[in-house]
Design a protein around this nucleic acid. Structure first.
Lengths: 189, 189
DNA sequence: TCAATTACGCTACTGCAGTATCGTAAAAGG
DNA sequence: CCTTTTACGATACTGCAGTAGCGTAATTGA
């Protein structure tokens, strides 16, 4: 079952990812050099390319690996949940170097395979917001003429828009404003 | 006034931009090679770098140059204007190679100088939407609790979000849906 | 006419991503 | 034991962005 030839060195992946993590922490995507990562990991460059087809794929695997699940437990207050969730996403985006996100988006646009991985990475947040929006709709917080899917885009899209396009800061306050704009003013019971 | 030494060759800029335009048309940002552009323009690479500090700056200058003003004359129907404008922006984004937009965003995040130019390039659309939203507000189409600035983000942001993040297509129908979601259903007089 | 100044072309270089080639090591199967 | 198969390391290469150095051309001012 395990194939015929020489088995793969199972330690390579971990060593390379660790080396890449150390490199990307100081300097972001551009500063991460495949040659340096390979040398630091004690691995030949060709071996590295046997695991990941490109620098972008390595970085995506790295980010996916580092990714810590944001624990989010929904309460019975969809509006509060939504605010909390959007604020958390905004905080996460603000904490990540903008150039890294932009470089991932660029790599995703260039290479279809990378695109799938990156979208899978970001789809998680999208789904979480979608779930809470669905609860808000059940609770009657969403106007009839509004499509839930579009509403999600209008909650999350502006975050990326500010980050990548206008360059304005992502404050917690802004996240709150987004939710209020979409759900209407606080309506006490 | 014109300085002391040898004057700059005034034809360089035009020739380089023309060569760059020809190159970028077939292959996008990555395929545009500074060496090839210089050769095609009949200019030394060093001369090219005397005008533009980086490839990104050259591309931004190129896009700015190619930019044709989208003629938009506001009518007395803010809602229709907004739909038309957002649809036009969506169409323009959909017609541009996604990787080019993503690469510009990445370059903007990397180099502050490029960031300014790119944001200036994109701010035009933002301002146009802001103006129409202001008219809509005057016409009473915007709910009181909604900030106009946030509303603009929620109209334009989802376009970039779909393009760069989720990878979903930008249809004219989607643009219309965005406007309706934000302004409420058509309210006949 | 001549020195100073600036632009230009040319060549060569660094560091980078990615590829090709080759000898060798480690396993499986005959 | 020996062949086959696969992984590995090493070296060298291509094309790329960007930089440095140098000789030379074109202009101004003395």
């Amino acid at each position: 079952m395990a194939g015929r030839g020489r088995p793969r060195d199972t330690g390579v992946e971990g060593r390379v990812l660790a080396a890449a993590a150390a490199e990307i922490r100081q300097g972001g995507y551009d500063a991460l050099s495949i040659d340096r990562v390979a040398e630091r990991a004690g691995v030949a460059k060709t071996t590295l390319y046997r695991r990941w087809a490109s620098k972008a794929e390595l970085v995506v695997a790295l980010i996916t690996n580092l990714r810590e699940e944001v624990p989010f437990e929904p309460t019975d207050d969809p509006r509060g949940d939504l605010t909390e969730l959007v604020t958390a996403i905004a905080a996460n985006l603000a904490a990540t170097p903008t150039s890294l996100i932009a470089d991932l988006a660029a790599a995703a646009a260039r290479e279809p395979r990378v695109g799938e991985s990156v979208r899978a990475l970001w789809a998680e947040r999208h789904r979480a917001v979608t779930a809470v929006v669905a609860k808000a709709q059940e609770a009657g917080l969403v106007l009839d003429h509004v499509s839930p899917a579009v509403l999600v885009d209008q909650l999350v899209g502006p975050l990326y828009y500010r980050l990548l396009v206008t360059g304005e800061p992502l404050t917690p306050d802004y996240a709150t404003t987004l939710v209020r704009s979409v759900l209407g003013p606080e309506e006490p019971q």
